[in-house]
Design a protein around this nucleic acid. Structure first.
Length: 502
RNA sequence: GCCCCCAUCGUCUAAGUGGUUAGGACACGGGCCUUUCAAGCCCGCGGUCGGGGUUCGAGUCCCCGUGGGGGCACCA
């Protein structure tokens, strides 16, 4: 362990887009680690590139994290002892640290223009050389460089990477990673606009904020040794480094592109947290799903609540290999967590989805339906689709569907009118009495249950697929059942005697 | 072109320091239940990337291939 004190982790996104499962999973693990150790989870916004700032993304990040239940202890909106937590508000700080590195001989001023650097890279590309800074300004006399800086000349500060030897960086899940120093470029630490690059900012802030475990995506593995160099140049103790595996597209072939993401969305699948929320996924399910991509508890346990995860998560069981996202597994987890919800809670969560579909309902309206729809939902979005007719004054009857299995319009009409007569006289109107009547009629009419119930189902719901029939009818009420059956009978009548052309 | 990482069923994964028929989940196929659709239960299909080593013994350790991923910006 390189640092002592409480466990402190952070999620440090840049506000350049919407929160996606890659970032959210990093946040989740970081949150879990802090919570289980009784430490702090920090949110830090890395907005040092003003050109790439996407308005609204910071809000999206926070809303997404809160929706998932990953509340932070310190962050831009709530402050904390090591603030500010937005890098653009810490700008002055970075220059000081960059200058310190120059003073210690670990960095230098560079006056090369972007144009010269572009030409240099082009030249190197042509000669099939690795693109790298050629060290022109590294050879400048420090005194002269300082004079030029003081004269106001545009410049950056670069890291003076050692030219010989190797560095060994230790990643918790991969072990030691050793690279030759000659393969490390003289990275820019401070840009000409005075903002730091990621490399400087992340090191300075993680140190100042006393971060003990750095969890981040595997895309940082390449510059990981540079960061280790920086810690050593500053003389700071390193945090524990954990580079999380990347996510691949469902086929396992390649990472997820913007185009892939658009294709998923058409099918109401998405890698964006805001979409998953909108598409009717539960935060519980999303967390469960994300947690298991790259981590496992044992050889059988798969259902986890956030509290379970706080208790059971461990860095030791993280995997280094990339994982393909599996949306059918998300569906599976969503069904599991929907079924685990208390009826009142499910009713409450379903409300916005019914409202969006045009049904103005309250949780109380929905509650009686829960017992018959809970096992039938994959997403909350399925709610109105499955049970919207409960809140309609009228329904449509697809006429052909009113004809029973292996029957014709005439016999279906006969059967349904019999049902109508008996139910009209039924009192009281309950699941049990309805079932009694209908089962009696099955017998009496010599039909199969599926034939008669099928006809009635379409008559009273307008659909071939519905929640269980008797419960549905009881909930619908006698008046609507009779009215809709009457309409169905009229439709069957029309089918028997097709209107002759007039 | 250079550097780094990874490798068990289609997919997510288990098999602490090498030791039985490589286990579970999703998906898929079949069955049970059954008024539809689900849920639930049962059964099945299916895997250690290839080649060399080390060893009595390799999914597990080493090397080489191959495949995949990431990086090589005054972006993060």
């Amino acid at each position: 362990m390189s640092q002592q004190g409480p466990v402190r982790t952070r999620f440090a996104p840049s506000p350049t887009g919407w929160l996606h499962i890659g970032g959210a999973r990093t946040a989740l693990y970081s949150f879990l680690l802090a919570r289980q150790a009784g430490g702090q989870f920090i949110l830090r916004i890395e907005d040092t590139d003003r050109k790439r700032y996407v308005p609204g993304s910071e809000e999206d990040l926070m809303e997404g994290l809160r929706w998932l239940g990953l509340e932070w202890d310190e962050g831009p909106d709530k402050g904390g002892p090591y603030g500010p937590y937005r890098q653009s508000e810490r700008k002055a700080l970075y220059r000081r640290y960059a200058e310190e590195l120059v003073a210690r001989g670990h960095a230098y001023y560079c006056f090369c223009t972007p144009e010269r650097l572009a030409r240099l890279r082009e030249e190197q590309r042509r000669r099939k050389l690795p693109p790298r800074y050629d060290g022109l300004c590294r050879r400048l006399d420090p005194e002269e460089a300082r004079r030029r800086v003081e004269a106001g000349e545009s410049h950056v500060i670069r890291f003076k990477a050692p030219r010989e030897g190797t560095v060994t960086a230790h990643d918790l899940i991969r072990g030691d990673i050793t690279v030759a120093n000659k393969d490390i470029d003289d990275y820019i630490l401070l840009k000409s606009d005075g903002y730091p690059t990621y490399h400087l900012a992340v090191v300075v802030d993680d140190h100042l904020m006393k971060i003990t475990h750095v969890l981040r995506g595997a895309e940082w593995l390449g510059t990981f040794p540079l960061h280790v160099h920086l810690y050593r140049a500053f003389g700071w103790p390193e945090p524990i480094w954990v580079h999380l595996s990347t996510f691949l597209k469902p086929s396992g072939k390649g990472k997820i592109s913007k185009r892939d993401a658009d294709i998923f969305r058409k099918d109401h699948k998405s890698v964006l947290i805001r979409d998953l929320r909108e598409f009717g996924y539960l935060p519980e399910a999303v967390n469960n799903w994300m947690a298991l991509m790259g981590w496992s508890y044992d050889d059988r346990t798969e259902f986890f609540t956030l509290d379970d995860l706080i208790e059971k998560f461990s860095l030791e069981r993280l995997k280094p290999s990339p994982a393909a996202v599996n949306f059918s597994k998300l569906d599976h987890f969503n069904g599991l967590h929907i079924r685990a919800l208390a009826p009142e809670e499910l009713a409450r969560r379903l409300v916005p989805f019914f409202q969006k579909a045009g049904y103005s309902v309250t949780p109380e309206d929905l509650l009686p339906l829960i017992p018959i729809i809970q096992t039938r939902l994959t997403t909350l979005e399925d709610g109105p689709q499955l049970a919207g007719f409960f809140f309609q004054e009228d329904i449509e009857h697809p006429e052909q569907d009113l004809i029973g299995d292996k029957m014709d319009a005439a016999s279906s009409y006969q059967a349904l009118s019999k049902v109508y007569q008996r139910l009209e006289a039924l009192d009281p109107w309950t699941t049990e009495t309805i079932e009694q009547v209908l089962r009696g009629l099955v017998e009496e009419l010599g039909l199969k249950p599926r034939q008669l119930f099928g006809i009635v189902r379409v008559a009273v719901t307008g659909r071939r697929v519905s929640p269980p029939l008797f419960e549905t009818m009881a909930l619908l009420g006698k008046e609507r059942c009779l009215r809709w059956m009457k309409q169905a009978l009229a439709a069957l009548e029309r089918l028997q005697a097709p209107a002759s052309p007039s």
